[in-house]
């Protein structure tokens, strides 16, 4: 899972895609995932970090992450 190079993020959940001119907002966990993606963390690492910090089990989170990634792809934010 790789963020497109030119995507601008604020760390607070604001995302801008200069390629399309679209801007987006995410919730807190969404912003954290974007930051981790920027740091080129793997799905396994992201899952471990988030499920360690938040009250969610790893399989539930993986499910949600898949869904989130699909949306990022739809919005042309992921490679």
């Amino acid at each position: 899972m790789k963020l497109k190079k030119n995507i601008a993020t604020s760390g607070e959940g604001f995302i801008f895609n200069p390629g399309t001119g679209d801007s987006f907002s995410t919730n807190e966990i969404g912003a954290e995932i974007i930051t981790l993606l920027k740091e080129e963390k793997s799905v396994a690492e992201i899952t471990q970090l988030i499920s360690g910090k938040y009250d969610v089990d790893a399989s539930q989170f993986e499910n949600d992450l898949d869904d989130f990634a699909a949306q990022l792809k739809d919005y042309s934010i992921l490679e």
């Binding site: 987006f24 907002s25 919730n27 966990i29 969610v56």
Partner: peptide
């Protein structure tokens, strides 16, 4: 926990 979301 809250499911991650993104909104245009």
């Amino acid at each position: 926990y809250e499911r991650p979301i993104i909104k245009k």
